[in-house]
Deep mutational scan, measured.
Amino acid sequence: KLLSSIEQACDICRLKKLKCSKEKPKCAKCLKNNWECRYSPKTKRSPLTRAHLTEVESRLERLE
């Protein structure tokens, strides 16, 4: 599967780190437990900047 097509777990399953069936409108866990089942939009991760990478590398060197 391509990364862009990976389905996201519902908010509660993601928060509780449960295996989500990803069914809509309610996944199996939410249906069974009568929880409100919501699927928040995916958040875009910002790409690493060179400055951040350099900072992490220098912190790693100090720890070694």
Rank of each mutant, 00 (worst) to 15 (best):
K1A: 15
K1F: 13
K1L: 13
K1M: 15
L2K: 10
L2N: 13
L2A: 12
L3K: 04
L3H: 12
L3T: 13
S4F: 13
S4E: 13
S4C: 12
S4T: 11
S5A: 12
S5E: 10
S5F: 09
S5Y: 10
S5W: 04
I6D: 07
I6T: 12
I6Y: 12
I6A: 11
I6N: 10
I6V: 11
I6R: 05
I6Q: 13
I6H: 11
E7F: 13
E7D: 11
E7M: 11
E7I: 10
Q8I: 08
Q8H: 12
Q8T: 09
Q8S: 12
Q8C: 04
Q8P: 08
Q8A: 11
A9C: 03
A9S: 04
A9K: 04
A9M: 00
A9T: 03
C10T: 03
C10F: 03
C10M: 08
C10H: 00
C10V: 01
D11M: 01
D11C: 04
D11T: 01
D11N: 03
D11G: 03
I12S: 07
I12V: 13
I12D: 10
C13T: 02
C13V: 07
C13Y: 08
C13L: 03
C13I: 06
C13Q: 00
C13K: 02
R14T: 07
R14G: 05
R14V: 04
R14M: 00
R14C: 02
L15T: 11
L15I: 11
K16C: 05
K16P: 01
K16L: 02
K16A: 03
K16V: 02
K16F: 07
K17Q: 07
K17T: 02
K17A: 05
K17S: 04
K17V: 04
K17H: 09
K17G: 01
L18E: 00
L18A: 14
L18C: 11
L18Q: 09
L18P: 10
K19R: 14
K19C: 07
K19G: 15
K19E: 04
K19Q: 05
K19T: 07
C20D: 08
C20A: 00
C20E: 07
S21C: 02
S21F: 02
K22I: 03
K22Y: 06
K22G: 04
K22T: 02
K22R: 10
K22F: 05
K22M: 04
K22C: 03
K22V: 08
E23W: 06
E23S: 13
E23C: 12
K24I: 15
K24S: 15
K24V: 15
K24N: 15
P25V: 04
P25L: 00
P25S: 10
K26G: 14
K26D: 08
K26C: 14
K26S: 13
C27P: 06
C27T: 02
A28R: 15
A28W: 15
A28S: 06
A28T: 13
A28P: 02
A28Q: 14
A28N: 10
A28M: 15
A28G: 11
K29N: 04
K29C: 08
K29H: 04
K29T: 08
K29D: 07
K29W: 01
K29M: 07
K29S: 05
K29I: 08
C30H: 04
C30A: 05
L31T: 12
L31K: 14
L31Y: 14
L31F: 15
K32R: 15
K32T: 11
K32C: 07
K32H: 09
N33M: 09
N33S: 14
N33G: 12
N34S: 12
N34L: 11
N34K: 13
W35I: 14
W35P: 07
W35A: 15
W35L: 15
W35E: 08
W35V: 14
E36F: 08
E36G: 11
E36K: 10
E36W: 04
E36D: 14
C37S: 05
C37W: 01
C37H: 03
C37K: 00
C37P: 00
R38G: 14
R38E: 15
Y39K: 02
Y39P: 00
Y39I: 03
Y39N: 04
Y39F: 08
Y39E: 06
Y39V: 08
S40C: 01
S40L: 04
S40W: 06
S40A: 07
S40Q: 09
S40E: 03
P41D: 09
P41E: 07
P41L: 03
K42P: 15
K42E: 05
K42T: 08
K42S: 08
K42L: 10
K42Y: 14
T43C: 12
T43G: 09
K44H: 08
K44A: 13
K44L: 15
K44V: 15
R45S: 01
R45F: 01
R45C: 03
R45P: 02
R45D: 00
S46E: 00
S46F: 03
S46Y: 05
S46W: 01
P47E: 07
P47S: 04
P47R: 08
P47W: 08
P47C: 05
P47Y: 06
L48Q: 04
L48M: 08
L48W: 08
L48I: 08
T49L: 05
T49G: 02
T49N: 01
R50Q: 07
R50L: 05
R50E: 05
R50H: 02
R50C: 02
A51Q: 12
A51Y: 07
A51T: 05
A51E: 05
H52T: 02
H52E: 08
H52N: 06
H52Y: 13
H52W: 10
L53I: 05
L53Y: 03
T54F: 05
T54K: 04
T54V: 05
T54M: 09
T54S: 11
E55Q: 12
E55R: 11
E55N: 11
V56W: 00
V56F: 02
V56S: 00
E57F: 06
E57H: 07
E57S: 07
E57A: 03
E57G: 02
E57W: 07
S58Q: 15
S58D: 12
S58K: 13
S58I: 15
S58W: 13
R59L: 06
R59A: 10
R59G: 05
L60W: 01
L60G: 05
L60C: 14
L60P: 04
L60S: 08
L60E: 00
E61Q: 13
E61T: 14
E61G: 13
E61R: 12
E61I: 10
E61Y: 13
E61S: 12
R62L: 12
R62A: 14
R62Y: 04
R62W: 04
L63Q: 04
L63V: 02
L63R: 09
L63T: 01
L63D: 03
E64K: 07
E64L: 06
E64G: 06
E64A: 04
E64S: 12
E64N: 02
E64P: 08
E64H: 10
E64Y: 12
